[in-house]
Amino acid sequence: MNPVNAKSPRQTWMAVLARASRDDLAAIHAAIAVPAHEVLKAPEVGSVMVEGRAGGTGQRFNLGEAAVTRCVVRIDGGVMGHAYALGRDRAKAEIAAVFDAMLQVEPAGGPLHIAIAKLHSAQAAVRERTSRKAAATKVEFFTLVRGE
């Protein structure tokens, strides 16, 4: 039951955009050609109630809320882009929504797809490093044999 494996390409890039910093996205924005866009739903800060399950698998309960920012845009040509991410960064949300629209029309292998794939690997590398640091604290037990 690993939801990461079941993601569509759009879900995958939206997850990468949500985890990116505003600086990451601004750097890509400055390096590629970006079409004009119209803001349909201005960047808005709100909350999502985060649900857990008792025991991890049982009854649902409300753990608490998380701050989330969303934005909807339409790029020239009519495609709509959506952004949803944790945090309160409105500027990041608008760029992410524009990128979401662009990625829907850009053919695979285009400059934005390549830039997002790079960002994806960078995020995976950070995660890998965190996991290897945790793995260094894994306990190796020794069994002491006493007597016969």
């Binding site: 039951m1 990461v4 800060v45 709100g46 909350s47 109630m49």
Partner: peptide
């Protein structure tokens, strides 16, 4: 804050430990 809704229930089995 306006509430956009509720999340999908968390899957703690998929935690990055």
């Amino acid at each position: 804050l306006p509430r956009f809704g509720a999340s999908v229930p968390l899957d703690t089995a998929a935690m990055h430990i």
